[in-house]
Write a protein that binds this DNA or RNA. Structure first.
Lengths: 169, 169
DNA sequence: GCCAATTGTTTTAAGCTTAAAATAAATCCG
DNA sequence: CGGATTTATTTTAAGCTTAAAACAATTGGC
């Protein structure tokens, strides 16, 4: 921008010129827009087609990948939501018969959550359709676009993690 | 994958071979992870530094870009949230003195929302710091990474919009 | 073995979010 | 003009989400 038209030695620049980070901000807003757009569509379709909410679907997706079940803490880390959030979500999914809680054999504080037979069957039906929706939503990207986007998001993920970790030192 | 090792003519493939969309699914999950990671960090910092929530910050950001104010419908479209959501959010920001509602001169159904003087000042302070956080979170991306990511997310946005529009036909 | 620190979970209070229904005003159009 | 449709907003009910505090069980160190 205008700033960069003024030639300055590196040191002066670092001290006196507040850097312009509008580009990063626009990037973040666009990332957020993409996610919100897709997430909203997926949420609506899950509700219309299967009368299920996105958080419930997400929780079942985690459990489907863990045949022997997961603790609430595992789920909390994987889903990146708070512990307290999970308590209620799990309660509702137990009530609807999709999952079960069983006592952990090794830790009396913990319970192990797993899909019921019918919960798993129902999830797999939903997941198959869900996968098609996602493919359709990303349908205009070429194979090369997708692999490049995957790479750049991988780099973004690492960058954000570094910034988040570093801050607490 | 295994599927593709079996040579089949195009028609047979299209009919009998369910396509594998795991790649798109992984891409979506990574996009979601990046957004969740960054959003969570920004939310936490806004709360700690300024005792403000992300939705309130977002609403003020929209208003800061519209000096003459916006209607609830405008805000709803821009922020991609439901109308009902905004009613409560606006009520709380009016109560805290950050924004004001005024009657629309042309439409008695509408009210126009704008930042108060102090609301604008407070927002600008927060926004300046917020911009640095974002720059830090994306800090490991090169200039080229950022422009390429911007381009690919632009393409993703268009792709998703097309898929969403097309569906309602 | 005991005490401190950590870990796993729940509870609480507040706020966010949605979909759907309701209300009211403006606009369309015959 | 007047009724039908659309648009702007609010209300409602349910569920999601968080941070913080509380509680209980486990682990680590002495």
């Amino acid at each position: 921008m205008d700033d960069q038209a003024i030639p300055l030695d590196a040191e002066t620049k670092a001290v006196e010129m507040p850097e312009d980070h509008r580009e990063e901000l626009r990037l973040w807003l666009r990332l957020l827009t993409c996610t919100t757009l897709i997430e909203g569509e997926v949420r609506g379709r899950l509700r219309e087609r299967f009368d299920v909410t996105l958080p419930r679907f997400d929780l079942m997706a985690q459990l489907d990948k863990a045949p022997s079940g997961m603790t609430l803490s595992d789920l909390s880390k994987r889903m990146m939501v708070s512990n307290g959030n999970l308590t209620g979500l799990v309660d509702r999914l137990v009530a609807s018969g999709h999952i079960i809680r069983s006592a952990s054999p090794t830790d009396r504080r913990s319970s192990v959550i797993s899909l019921t037979e019918s919960g798993r069957a129902e999830f797999r039906t939903m997941a198959a359709e869900h996968e098609h929706w996602i493919a359709e939503l990303f349908g205009d990207l070429t194979e090369k676009d997708r692999s490049e986007l995957m790479r750049l998001l991988g780099k973004t993920k690492l960058s954000a993690r570094r910034a988040i970790q570093g801050e607490s030192q």
